[in-house]
């Protein structure tokens, strides 16, 4: 590894919280986000030299996190058990005005979307990735990205009908 490449420890120290935020908007769950990031970093730890030599190690890791999220949910879903007592989603830090109430409505409905749709919306609206970039990350076509995004937004619009979301944009 050349001196210009980040060491594993330095990378995690500098970008760990960003990775966790990325994982959190994908999963909607703090603990799953921690597990997801740890699983991916464990996998990449042993071949960090190659990761560090890429153009953007962070982009590489985020892509791994996203792909692991999609495959991980498939593998783990068989074992999840329903419970009658569904905990309320953790409220975001911030005020408790109507603005955040509308905001949380969007967040809650995002959690109900199929995970691929949620991942695409997260990449588009949180990471500001283009459809072409999302397609490359997910290994699908750009038209498929647009189709998934459209279905996700349509679902959200239907579910949020009657909810004032305009105030959530502050």
């Amino acid at each position: 590894m050349s001196s210009s490449q980040p060491s594993f420890d330095a990378f995690v120290a500098a970008r760990g919280s960003a990775l966790l935020r990325h994982a959190y908007v994908l999963t909607g769950d703090r603990h799953l986000a921690e597990d997801l990031v740890q699983e991916v970093l464990t996998h990449l730890y042993r071949r960090w030299d190659k990761v560090a030599a890429t153009t953007s190690p962070e982009a590489y890791v985020k892509t791994s996190v996203t792909r692991q999220f999609l495959s991980w949910r498939r593998r783990r879903s068989y074992a999840e058990r329903p419970t009658d007592a569904v905990p309320e989603p953790r409220a975001a830090q911030g005020d408790s005005s109507d603005t955040s109430a509308g905001d949380d409505a969007v967040w809650r409905q995002l959690a109900t979307l199929p995970h691929r749709q949620r991942a695409i919306l997260a990449l588009r609206f949180y990471d500001d990735q283009s459809d072409a970039q999302i397609a490359e990350i997910l290994g699908i076509s750009a038209s498929a990205v647009r189709a998934h995004a459209s279905r996700g937004i349509t679902t959200l619009r239907e579910q949020l009908a009657g909810t004032d979301v305009s105030g959530a944009m502050s």
Binding site: D9, V12, A13, G16, S17, L19, L20, R21, A23, Y24, V25, R30, A33, E34, V37, Q38, L41, T42, Y45, R90, A91, A92, Q93, G94, S100, G102, D103, D104, V106, W107, L110, L121, A122, F125, Y126, I153, L156, R157, L160, V165, S166, A168, M169, S170
Partner: peptide, 26 residues
């Protein structure tokens, strides 16, 4: 409006994400 609301929601809630990666665990 909905696009902006999604963007705002994701960014606002992302602040509630955990902040520390368990490096020893990795």
């Amino acid at each position: 409006d909905l696009d902006d609301a999604i963007r705002a929601s994701l960014r606002r809630n992302a602040e509630a994400a955990p902040t520390i990666v368990d490096l020893d665990g990795v």
